[in-house]
Write a protein that binds this DNA or RNA. Structure first.
Lengths: 413, 413
DNA sequence: CACGTTTGATCGTTACCCTCG
DNA sequence: CCGAGGGTAACGATCAAACGT
């Protein structure tokens, strides 16, 4: 019985970790100090943990299951079925050269022991894992999770469960990519919104990791993205056509953190459309702030209370546009009469509050990525495809100066 | 050189996968069929993939890096440093019995080869991995991602990068838990909102996986959650105190999918508060629908256009409450004069639209879970702690009957 | 020579047991 | 006899080659 030893591993592993966790002691203390002044109630602190340490007792808890005290290995199965491990492996991998009798014997043993092959050992042996990973920033943002969710759903449809890494900055992103650039770690990788360097792409390729870009273009790999410059142009053209001329812009300032390009691109497009329309964008009418409703609201407040307030504001996200609407409402500025407002992403909430917004096919983008990924995994000779999705302005009341159109609340999803 | 062979692995691996992907062919075809009628533009379909197959070329791309053609192993490092693998391992794990000279030699070799130990091989050898996993449903919901995000942030602070599994139903959840119930797969696991069965908890424990419940209570494990019944009570009491008596309820109907309990609990609390206040909840005033703004809006429409419309509606989420507000607005029902509206979660958007809502400390819950987890990993003798966080009603205009406080953000006439 | 089965090498690390100064 | 380092079984699987019938 090697089980007792296996429990010791837990401790040694923790000790290894302890060195990396020295920081934790502090943040932990701070946290618990904070907690004491917060609405936290400790209910119980009980439970003996003997059962955790033994784990043996009551051999057959349910059905005909046999409890070995540790997770069954292929060897346990082989022993119980009275065959060699190779035979079990062949059964597992649906290979030939296994007689009906043996196969059944093995299957019975597998069921009895509740055996599951270790993905780790399998990956190590095969020289590649069967895991699909997704790396994404800002998983709290609706536009990001909408993409991820539909991508997950698409992968799920064929039985793939992907694991998601949410990163907070470039350094962390780089670290995750580095970890994943290992033939054993992952079979495929979807990177959302964060630009991938050539070196990183090369590293992944040489580790046989299939890379797909979602909301970014990656040279030499599949990718699905939109033309943000064009998105800005659409907005500019639309606002001009509605008779707005003093256009303001509120965008995300955190571009440097991940080297995002979407805000810049949209601003660039807006500028170009205004220029073409004989208008222009005043420096004072451009505000950059952290992504968020309240942050955008502040910016809008500044713009609207300035000497030369704009008569329309383009927020580079619906989340921000909501802040603009809120600011206008608070200041008594009428939308759309005194102020036109346009957002980006066309989230569900845009329809609810009557916000004009640029529709980018978020869930479609995720689906296509899933599709591309599946194709890469099935067809090894697939060439990289760069897919650009079109953008489209969904016009609602926030830019409509015609009163009788105000009732138009239902969008074209 | 074993490199050429390693590339072949890719293909064989794909073939193994192909059998599981038979379904994919169909969904793929369907998808691409659909695409043809959608705004999709294919830009390029080029790029030779020779470089992918060789991976050797240009030996030293940057600095003094040496390219072996394959990811360096501990053996490569040992060879280059002129030592045995054991020594390299000792250096890597900060162990004793390594002289200064040797350590430096090894470190140089590691740098030159850009060597990273394989987590897989390490986990297999040590009998346990150093990965932290999170399993959660509905990652598109703000309340869920808010929790996850703060938990990730807390873990990140001490250098832990967790991987997140988004699941779509019970079966998938069970599958993920089963996969993770392997001593090699993960060191710790956070389960969000989905009830964990005793058998699952036992399985995880016997695999030495530290389990923490977030938004659920797990017997025998750390967990952080709220008292949803009390949440319902708070709302009921508040509405009664504002003079609302015909209370309606709109909740999520998908409870069965994951066996969620929060909607039921909140309804139960609401009922009990009304009963105590001498009122009651009419059967016809209870609506259950899929989670979402538009779905809740439909339910609200039905309620408000019925023979006996309620004078207040409690939606079990802010997302739903937004739909209620939208419905009221569309029907010309004044909020809060004719209709009181209360939501749950107190998302940022609640403040923007003046929605009264029950504040549950979403990000705090994630932080505490991170803290508990770190404690478990550092102190092996920690007892399980069940933490219940308090709820609190944030009162805004949607339940305030003083007319001049009413703010109307929606595009009303 | 088919077919079924066992055996041993391999994947990259760690842990343990040696052997030297 | 101790401290520094070298070999070599594990870990749990896959796969090819050898082996009986």
């Amino acid at each position: 019985m090697s089980a007792p030893g296996s429990f010791v591993h837990q401790y040694s592993l923790n000790e290894v970790f302890a060195s990396r966790l020295r920081l934790a002691i502090f943040s932990e203390r701070n946290l618990s100090k904070r907690n004491s002044s917060l609405p936290v109630t400790l209910l119980t602190t009980a439970k003996p943990k003997d059962s955790m340490l033994t784990g043996f007792g009551s051999a057959s808890r349910s059905g005909g299951l046999v409890d070995l005290g540790h997770r069954a290995t292929i060897e346990d199965v082989a022993a119980r079925a009275g065959v060699g491990v190779g035979t079990v492996s062949r059964v597992l991998n649906q290979q030939k050269h296994v007689s009906r009798v043996m196969r059944e014997k093995v299957e019975v043993a597998i069921a009895e022991l509740n055996y599951r092959p270790s993905r780790l050992a399998r990956a190590l042996s095969k020289g590649g894992s069967d895991i699909v990973s997704i790396v994404a920033p800002y998983i709290t943002r609706p536009s990001v999770v909408a993409r991820i969710d539909s991508c997950l759903a698409g992968l799920n449809r064929v039985g793939i469960v992907a694991s998601l890494f949410g990163v907070f900055n470039r350094a962390q992103f780089d670290q995750v990519i580095d970890t994943l650039s290992d033939r054993h770690s992952t079979m495929a990788l979807v990177v959302v919104s964060i630009p991938v360097t050539d070196a990183q792409a090369r590293g992944l390729r040489s580790a046989n990791v299939n890379l797909v870009g979602l909301d970014i273009d990656v040279a030499g790999s599949d990718s699905v993205f939109v033309d943000n410059i064009h998105g800005g142009e659409i907005v500019g053209t639309h606002l001009l056509s509605r008779g707005y001329h003093q256009i303001g812009f509120i965008g995300d300032a955190d571009s440097g953190k991940f080297q995002f390009t979407s805000t810049d691109a949209r601003l660039c497009g807006l500028r170009s459309a205004l220029r073409q329309g004989g208008s222009s964008l005043e420096i004072g009418h451009i505000k950059l702030c952290e992504h968020g409703t309240s942050q955008a609201k502040e910016c809008a407040m500044e713009l609207l209370t300035s000497n030369r307030p704009p008569d329309a504001i383009f927020a580079s996200s619906d989340t921000g546009a909501l802040g603009v609407l809120s600011a206008a409402n608070e200041l008594g500025v009428r939308v759309p009469e005194d102020l036109g407002v346009v957002g980006f992403d066309n989230l569900e909430m845009a329809a609810v509050v009557g916000l004009s917004s640029v529709l980018q096919p978020l869930s479609l983008s995720g689906e296509i990525v899933a599709e591309r990924l599946i194709r890469q995994l099935t067809q090894s000779d697939a060439h990289p495809v760069h897919t650009m999705l079109d953008l489209e302005l969904v016009e609602r009341t926030s830019t409509s100066r015609v009163p009788n159109l105000v009732r138009q609340l239902q969008p074209t999803t």
